[in-house]
Amino acid sequence: MRWQIPLLIVLIGGVFMAVQYFVPLEFSERIYEYCVDWVIIVGVFAMGLGLWSLFRVSVGKIQTKAQGWGYNFITLGGLFGMILLGLFSGIEEGKQFMNLFWYIYTPIQSSMFALLAFYVASAAYRAFRARTLVSTILLLTAVVIMLRLIPLGPVSGLNQTVASWILTVPNMAAKRAIAMGIGLGGIATALKVVLGIERSYMGKE
């Protein structure tokens, strides 16, 4: 019961989803849509587990007065504030729920994303210091591609030609090889899952 049924569910679910791809019939289309909806519904139920985990860990830190425990009050306040506002006063534009989203969530998110500008620079700097053949190839290519949009006077045209050649020829070749490798690895993994060989996600007992 504990193992056979889940493995059977994996097998039937996996085989059906693979087969329906080849079958355009309305019947297969509908079952596919139901499956996708069911997965979404299970995901929403699972949100309960997620929030319970976040809550437990935060409360645990407060209880044990772990380092920086005070910040957990802010997390829990933000969490429950949003949930109460969102569930009971609506999520339309102009409601407090969306105001908090626009004035607190959005600026922090954009700032986190913008940090990437600094990190790209520091990562490039480090790659520059590693003087191996492969890192030199990586860096030279990066420089050529980076400069393609910047006016460089007389060499601008040449740089642009080289950049577009790199993008469409050697870059494309490598991209295809990587993609094919990932494809093979992915389908082998999918097959192992469906056959029940790969089951670390189910744990052991």
Partner: peptide
């Protein structure tokens, strides 16, 4: 991801076992 939470817990627990 909440579902990843559960599968990761299973994988780690299995490792400890």
């Amino acid at each position: 991801d909440p579902v990843v939470l559960t599968v990761a817990q299973e994988a780690v627990k299995a490792g400890y076992y």
